[in-house]
Amino acid sequence: MKNNRYELNKELAQMLKGGVIMDVTNAEQAKIAEEAGACAVMALERIPADIRAAGGVSRMSDPKLIKEIQAAVSIPVMAKVRIGHFVEAQILEALEIDYIDESEVLSPADDIYHINKEKFQVPFVCGAKNLGEALRRISEGASMIRTKGEPGTGDVIQAVVHMRLIQGEMRNVMSLREDELFQKAKELEVPMDLLRFVHKNGRLPVVNFAAGGIATPADAALMMQLGAEGVFVGSGIFKSGNPAHRAQAIVKAVTNFNDSKILAEVSENLGKAMVGINEGEIKILMRERGI
């Protein structure tokens, strides 16, 4: 049997389901995340809240940092590249990264084209705020999708909007007659075969996580109840008062997202949550990057 990289890459995302992927900026944080039960870590130089605060151009992390984090933990290590920056992706592939996030959190390198992800052996996760974006990224070779909630804000509203929109649009697609799919594909600017998959199965052909603005166990459980298959937590953990404690609580909340008793227990006494910025107060809307 021939290796089917794309299938294998989708299958790695399946193994991450029901888990929490945590942003970490050094080996020490990566170990804290692993011990707290993270199913993977995202290695980056600055967490989104600090990227937002610092301004300027934000790029792929130093390979040395990524290697240190890879050496520190046994769980999968992901890292971000700028939208369209296929050379940053080539570098991460050379480092044998487990997943590349082509991410709006960094400054985009291309305002039209995303990376042709089919050219790579390593898997990609991409952000999407609606069904059209999700299916376009999958058609480019993404093997995992996440919402594009506003990173670094601690404000969950956009992740909620995106998850509801994607789910709602999929329900709409399912309700269509088969002969109406052609027009829908035109409207959404997506390939017909992917739209047919959604029509038939009522879900994306890849795993779909929530990301952006998740700061509390309740936020994580909210996203799971809305249909996310797992969550990314960026600034929410290491910008809080007690990262290890909060990280464990979010892991437990994702596993038992439907049990309000457990959610009440794990929400207790977590210390200070990240301060956060309301979405109305921010200047840069990262979700508008790469559509």
Binding site: P76, Q248, V251
Partner: peptide
Amino acid sequence: GESTTMYK
């Protein structure tokens, strides 16, 4: 899945 996560 992840053995460390499950064990935790």
